[in-house]
């Protein structure tokens, strides 16, 4: 028979994986809920998932590609910026929904026990689904511009996705826990994401910083993700293993810090939220 012992303090390291497994269906249903509810009572429904990246791409192409003439390493600017956008939107959407997840489901937190980690991690799934939808347009664009991805992409793309997942989840875990206590987070997030867009090579190439300062840009794990995504998909630039390694390292670090803070504050969520 299962024995549970409740003590005043829990060790943050002892994540009960068996319990997480027991609640895997909750994870599934919460993600399903978010997917289903997301476009309920909207006139065009799921089409929003196509519109947002396409419209962003068009605007960026007009202003940064055509008017500002930003260097796109020889590739057509639309596909150049779109590769960046697909990963960027995945990241920013995952981050903002994960950060708000605990507060928006506070009634559940106050009334029932379940491993709290499930809430922010399931919201990231929704962002991932939008990412898949946006990627389908990318495939169409690759077909149109006749880009053939390198075979290595089959191996590297999942890694890039995982980096994005863990970066946004790590930051999301941290911010969602902070948000429980300090509702300021809600106002900071949109601003923070907007700032981060300019610190990430979405609209410009990664080499813009120059070799000397490239490492500063690489501190942002999304930088390495987008740079290498372009290298794989467009193929005009070489794969940058250095920035990839840094992205992996920093995303793991962010995830551990986020998880640590989350676990540390988790027991007080119901009292504070």
């Amino acid at each position: 028979m299962k024995e549970t012992i409740i003590l005043p303090k829990r060790s943050w390291l002892r994540i009960d994986f068996r319990e997480m497994l027991q609640y895997k269906d909750l994870f599934y249903f919460l993600a399903l809920r978010d997917v289903k509810v997301r476009y309920k009572q909207t006139a065009i429904g799921i089409l929003w998932a196509f519109f947002v990246p396409i419209i962003s791409m068009v605007i960026f192409t007009v202003f940064f590609g055509n008017l500002a003439q930003i260097d796109s390493s020889g590739a057509p600017y639309p596909i150049f910026v779109y590769v960046g956008l697909v990963f960027w939107l995945f990241f920013s959407q995952a981050l903002s929904s994960a950060s708000g997840s605990l507060v928006s489901d506070q009634e559940m937190i106050k009334k029932i026990y379940f491993p709290r980690l499930i809430l922010p991690s399931s919201t990231v799934i929704v962002a991932f689904i939008d990412f898949l939808i946006a990627s389908s347009i990318l495939c169409a664009m690759m077909f149109y511009y006749q880009f053939v991805p390198k075979p290595i992409s089959l191996f590297l793309i999942p890694i890039l996705i995982l980096i994005t997942y863990f970066t946004s989840l790590g930051m999301g875990l941290f911010l969602s826990a902070v948000n429980v206590k300090y509702r300021d987070v809600r106002y900071i997030i949109p601003f923070f994401i907007q700032m981060l867009l300019f610190l990430t090579p979405v609209i410009y190439p990664a080499k813009i910083a120059g070799e000397k300062y490239q490492w500063i840009l690489n501190l942002n794990p999304m930088s390495g993700v987008i740079e290498n995504a372009r290298a794989i998909i467009i193929g005009n630039t070489p794969i940058n293993l250095e920035s990839l390694a840094m992205s992996i390292g920093i995303s793991i670090l962010l995830f551990i810090v986020g998880l640590f803070y989350f676990r540390k504050t988790e027991q007080k969520f119901a009292d504070v939220v």
């Binding site: 012992i5 409740i6 003590l7 005043p8 106050k110 029932i112 027991q267 007080k268 009292d271």
Partner: peptide, 10 residues
């Protein structure tokens, strides 16, 4: 849902 300040529950 919330943890006790002291004590132990089995």
């Amino acid at each position: 849902i919330t943890s006790p300040t002291t004590g132990k529950i089995t």
